[in-house]
Amino acid sequence: QGDIVVALYPYDGIHPDDLSFKKGEKMKVLEEHGEWWKAKSLLTKKEGFIPSNYVAKLN
């Protein structure tokens, strides 16, 4: 089961498979690959890669 993270900063995706998000948006982490994680937005239901240093895990 994936962790839920919250965006600390907004992110505008650079690549087509990036997931753009707004500050405060919550996402479910699907896979962790070093600095880039695959996640699904709980708001938009879209999936893509996010920079892990832009988010914090919720406990």
Rank of each mutant, 00 (worst) to 15 (best):
K46M: 11
H15T: 09
V29D: 01
K45G: 15
P10I: 06
P16R: 08
L43M: 10
K22P: 03
E25W: 04
L8N: 04
D3Q: 14
H33L: 11
G13Y: 01
E32A: 14
W37C: 09
W37D: 02
G13C: 06
P16Y: 08
F49Y: 12
A56Y: 13
D17L: 12
S41E: 02
Y11V: 02
G24K: 03
S52H: 09
E31G: 08
E47Q: 10
K45N: 14
L42W: 04
Y54T: 04
E47T: 13
G24P: 00
D3K: 14
D3L: 15
A56Q: 13
L42R: 03
L19G: 00
E35M: 13
K28F: 13
V5T: 02
G48V: 00
H33P: 04
M27L: 12
K45V: 05
W37R: 07
G34H: 05
A56W: 09
L30T: 06
K28I: 15
V6H: 05
E31M: 09
D17T: 12
K46G: 06
V55R: 00
D17Q: 13
K28G: 04
D3A: 14
L58C: 12
D18R: 10
G2D: 11
V5K: 00
G2S: 11
K28R: 14
S20G: 06
E47N: 05
W37Q: 06
Y54H: 09
E47C: 12
E35Q: 13
P10Q: 13
K28A: 10
G13S: 11
G48D: 00
L8M: 08
L43K: 10
A39V: 14
K57F: 13
F49D: 04
V55K: 02
G2P: 09
H33G: 10
L30Q: 05
N53T: 12
Y9E: 07
N53L: 09
S52W: 09
K40P: 00
G2M: 11
Y54I: 06
L58W: 12
K22E: 09
K46E: 09
K23I: 09
L30P: 01
F49Q: 07
K22V: 12
E32V: 15
D18I: 08
L42M: 09
W36F: 10
S20D: 05
K26M: 15
